[in-house]
Amino acid sequence: MATQSATLDVNGEAREFQGDPRQTLLDFLRLDLKLTGTKKGCDHGQCGACTVIVNGRRINSCLSLAIMHDGDQITTIEGIGTPENLAAIQRAFVSHDGFQCGYCTPGQICSATAMLKELAAGWPSAVTEAVADTPAPSDKELRERMSGNLCRCGAYSNIIAAIREVMQSEKGT
């Protein structure tokens, strides 16, 4: 088994991957790059805690090999905002208490960030009545679109409230 390499753009910085091709993008971020904001909840694409944004799309980083991401642009929670400079969605999560233990939170926030773009692009979801139409951004739509991110503390209502606040403020500006 040969060591292989790739260069990934992580939060705007070129990062070298060199190592075991078995390493997932998730473990590369957490163990090699020490970007532990991305969480491992199940390691099998069943919880969404590891959600990151790759080339604009949200994915489960646990079900993707680091070596496959040569040249990809990856945004993790660390690239969305910092405690000193919170993104609007992060501020909204804090003010609406969109989390309790905080473990699913980076995944929820990365997921929501990409989800809002999907919605803006008019993507339908399983609850869109007529898939050919542009979906209305109802709470029902938001819930379905966020269903890939489990929260065992049960902060779901608050998460939706936080996302809605961001949508409204973006609409207002």
Binding site: R30, K34, L35, T36, G37, T38, K39, K40, T76, I77, E78, I80, G81, T82, P83, L86, Q90, F93, V94, S95, D97, F99, G102, Y103, T105, P106, I109
Partner: peptide, 20 residues
């Protein structure tokens, strides 16, 4: 709001497996 909230929403709160 929770005082540790900003850390949690930024992925800066350090959980058990994450100590370096």
């Amino acid at each position: 709001a929770r005082p540790e909230g900003a850390l949690k929403v930024c992925g800066q709160a350090t959980y058990a497996a994450e100590h370096d």
